[in-house]
């Protein structure tokens, strides 16, 4: 999604959020990521005013007070954390681990195929279809991508073919490279 994203060209407008909308987003985030509750004040302090950057292709970025991108979403989809945020607080998103061979493909933006999640070296956490997942890798400590399950983990085991996780945001893509917005 962010493969061709470029900070300069892709952001069309930045808006200050109304406090009621802010509250709404916070509540939504907590609902989607209950584990976030302990640290949400670190990520999005209550007093801060956040901004939303509207981008091309119906992408919205949530910016915190410092202008850092913390969450993004596509149309009305779920809010997903950016990788920089996820590296700081890796625990709140369900993790799926792919094997070593898949890393380079994911890093160039490919979706994760089922065999990459079921082969030795991979490791799955049971989750439903449509869950936001952090893609980890065999032998690595940090997440390398963020995506959405297109099948439930059970089905992935059963089918073992085709796309398992749709990759949305990966290391060194446009969003990763973009700097904090002032």
């Amino acid at each position: 999604m962010f493969k061709k994203f470029e900070e300069k060209d892709s952001i069309s407008s930045i808006q200050q959020l109304k406090s009621s909308v802010q509250k709404g987003i916070r509540a939504k985030l907590l609902e989607a990521y209950p584990k976030l509750e302990t640290h949400i004040d670190l990520i999005l302090p209550k007093k801060d005013s956040y901004r939303i950057a509207k981008c091309h292709d119906h992408i919205e970025l949530l910016l915190n007070g410092g202008g850092e991108q913390v969450f993004f979403r596509h149309r009305d989809g779920p809010w997903m954390p950016t990788l920089r945020l996820l590296h700081k607080f890796p625990y709140f998103v369900t993790m799926q681990q792919v094997d070593k061979g898949a890393i380079r493909f994911v890093l160039s933006g490919a979706n994760v195929m089922c065999p990459g999640l079921t082969s030795p070296g991979a490791c799955m956490t049971p989750a439903e279809k449509g869950t936001v997942v952090a893609i980890m890798a065999e032998g690595k400590e940090h997440a390398l991508a963020i995506g959405l399950l297109t099948l439930s983990t059970e089905d992935i085991l059963k089918v073992n073919k085709g796309i398992g996780i749709e990759t949305y945001h990966f290391l060194n893509d446009g969003l990763w490279k973009s700097k904090p917005v002032k």
Binding site: L42, K88, Y91, Q97, S119, C123, T125, M136, T153
Partner: peptide, 22 residues
């Protein structure tokens, strides 16, 4: 065979207790 991580605490990744933000 495909390992299933039941707790999602990052155990299967060998993470240790840490303070946030990392």
């Amino acid at each position: 065979e495909p390992a299933i991580n039941k707790t999602n605490t990052g155990e299967c990744l060998g993470l240790v207790e840490v303070t946030y933000p990392i």
